[in-house]
Design a binder for these strands. Sequence first.
DNA 1: CACCCCATGTAATATGTTACATGATTCT
DNA 2: AGAATCATGTAACATATTACATGGGGTG
Lengths: 182, 182
Amino acid sequence: MFNFVVIGMVLHQPLTGYDIKKYVDISIGNFFKASHGQLYPALKKLTDKNYLTMEEQSQGGRIKKYYHATKLGKDAFMDWLSAPTDFNSSSDTIMVKIFFFGELPDEIRRQRLYECELFVQQNLHKLREIEEQFAHSIESDRDYFEIATLYYGIQNNLSTLRWLRHIKEKKPYSGFIQKEDK
Amino acid sequence: MFNFVVIGMVLHQPLTGYDIKKYVDISIGNFFKASHGQLYPALKKLTDKNYLTMEEQSQGGRIKKYYHATKLGKDAFMDWLSAPTDFNSSSDTIMVKIFFFGELPDEIRRQRLYECELFVQQNLHKLREIEEQFAHSIESDRDYFEIATLYYGIQNNLSTLRWLRHIKEKKPYSGFIQKEDK
DNA sequence: CACCCCATGTAATATGTTACATGATTCT
DNA sequence: AGAATCATGTAACATATTACATGGGGTG
């Protein structure tokens, strides 16, 4: 996934490694991390494989390296983005992909978002089954907090579901965020 | 963290590697994965280091290996659990720790939960600053979905905050989960 | 008797973090 | 002048996934 995120960041404009890191941090940093120790070697490898081009520009006394996606890189990126999400991998993969979903044609995007919805629903169903098994046995502190994370999961999945349904329709965000109850 | 999760699972009763994996999957599987290729070597290492004991029991034709935390193991686990959470690491670390928070004395638990609350609030603040930067520039599909993940983050943090405040007081779960609006 | 679950393990590979290393520019 | 930020890179280490490998027990 890492490589595709890197390519995705330089689809429409050239950026330096440093810029990419910064942009990753503020945009998807909440669920995706790119350490520069991983980023710089990746940029080199992707350039060697012709997924990216690199152009050096001297600014002031130093040389900046601007990377930009090639046709080959873009195609590989789009293949990855269009493909059905592998829900076995980390749940963050979904979020990372959705970040780039503006690149997809409407139809495919809807299809992929619908698959996400199904997955979250299934997940929710599983969690609720587990809830039924354990909910009646809260006796100790131990049980309380073990079950707390279960409720966290349920709430989280519900909230994700609501979000997915919202963005599937490309509804405006105004009013999307619910007020804090406190 | 992996090792502590393993120890945490066998604090109060001996389990086999297979059982541990199953229990991890249903309890914290939503945010923590333990592949058996990682689990079995870890169990061996922890036993070598005297954090766990291993007892073989033959059941039917096969030998099962039951692992149980030693005093040394429990102490190490409690040190990890009591220590302030490192919020730089994956956000799942918090959830994994909270799963075990029933093991902590009330005071420390409250303190740690309070720190979590502060962190989530800070995170929320950061996200809202980013929101202000970008919210007025939704023009293309690209922007819509890039910002979608930002709103996801905000909603998620709000929901986490609500949950943290709830469990800090050890309020009952009945009524905690909000109804779906659809 | 085939398939699935139980049960344990290793090895090759892939991925990711942290520390080491260097040096320019900008702000205070 | 010193600190923070910009900017790029490598190497050692830590962590995690996947495939390989084996075999018992229960169910249809």
